[in-house]
Write a protein that binds this DNA or RNA. Sequence first.
RNA 1: GGAGAGAUGGCCGAGCUGGUUGAAGGCGCCUGACUCGAAAUCAGGUGUGGGGGCAACUCCACCGGGGGUUCGAAUCCCUCUCUCUCCGCCA
Length: 428
Amino acid sequence: MLDVRILREAPDRLEEGLRRRGLTIDIASLAGRERRRRDLSGQVDEFKARRNRASAEIAQLKKAGQPAEALLGEMKSAAERIRSLDEEIGGLEREIWDAFLTIPNLPHPGVPTGSDERGNREVRRFGESRLGGTARPHWEVGERLGIVDFERASKIAGARFSVFIGAGARLERALIDFMLDLHTREFGYTEVSPPLLVNRESLVGTGQLPKFEEELFKVEGGSLFLIPTAEVPVTNLHRDEILDEGSLPRAYAAYTPCFRREAGAYGRDTRGLIRQHQFDKVELVRISRPEESYNELERLVSHAEEVLKRLDLPYRVVELCTGDLGFSAAKTYDIEVWMQGQGEGGAYREISSCSNCEAFQARRASIRYRPAGKKGTEFVHTLNGSGLAVGRTVAAILENFQSEDGSVAVPKALRDYMGGMDSIRKKT
RNA sequence: GGAGAGAUGGCCGAGCUGGUUGAAGGCGCCUGACUCGAAAUCAGGUGUGGGGGCAACUCCACCGGGGGUUCGAAUCCCUCUCUCUCCGCCA
């Protein structure tokens, strides 16, 4: 959430930021309500001050055994006034608050303006396709090997689910271990294993609610939701906390399954592992001082990239334009892995998304710290990124490491995690 | 699931027969004095958010969340959430 004060201090900046995202909202009306709220709030504060003074007097009079009827009567009418003012203020506050909960973060000034993914900017590439030409899509590779089964998954659960079997399941587990080990041992992340069900407050804190409820699975008979990403429970670890400055930056790595309705994606990626209702992900979350957060973002991306480098998977890093930016993000890098089996001759597909949310989530979730030498508290900046999406990594390995004979080589970095297995072959 | 107890400042912990209690006391932390230095001791300070003011400062709100009673609520009532104890059930 943005700071409401932007309405009176920098409405132009608000309008400009939203315009770059392709949004227009009635800022003047909101600003008017904020002015009115502030005005009434000043008035009611005065009434309350008077009431507090009178209360002390009444206490004195009663103590001295003197009559206080005159004051009592006077305060009775003041109480009425206070009540009605408070009511109006409360209404205005709710309106403004509700509006702000649905206003996205403002893009960082350096983010390119654009309306959709065509406006994104490629930042760098790494690696080259090892195969070239056309290759089988991962669902074919996986099904032929008998390590991924979509048909049985849909029997068990429905469309957009998959089952890993045998070496497929082992590969998935190996990737999770490999990623967590890399991030915790080499990059200093603290491993977290959070709840997979979270309450409303947590989802409001990171920005999924109130606006994107239709994307979430809600548990029947309760008020809990399945997490769409570990970003939710992990960032909310520190909701309503004031962190020690010395403990920043904090870095967490969490492996969790993620659950998404994919409500707006009817025709897209209907085959394969790319878009599932349930998928595994190793998520990275960093919490930093505001002045450090853009350095932290570069660090975060480099950590996610390192996974792909060690797996010998080619990729590129793309900076999202304003129109492609997520709700809570001020700046986002997507990492797109090369997938040899997609389309004609391969394609880059998103495998990680690394964002700096600046104070947007921190303000919603009230995560602060005490800056040394300054009075008071300040909101931290929160960052998150996939490090990486496991299902898509499996898919990328199947497509990029497939051989003519249908087998799939195991990337070197993964072999120890696979019990020494160097390739996945069909069981005979 | 049944019965009971409780949620107060960074922590522990009073207050809960409604009226200088933003909140005693202790611990912790910060500053000063003492000391070559430290410990100990002594003195002072030490919540968050919002409004006004250049500032000193001042006003308002906040004692788990929400609502109510009252001139006035940490204190009374309702409700929700969470925690603890005992019983039952269970990975």
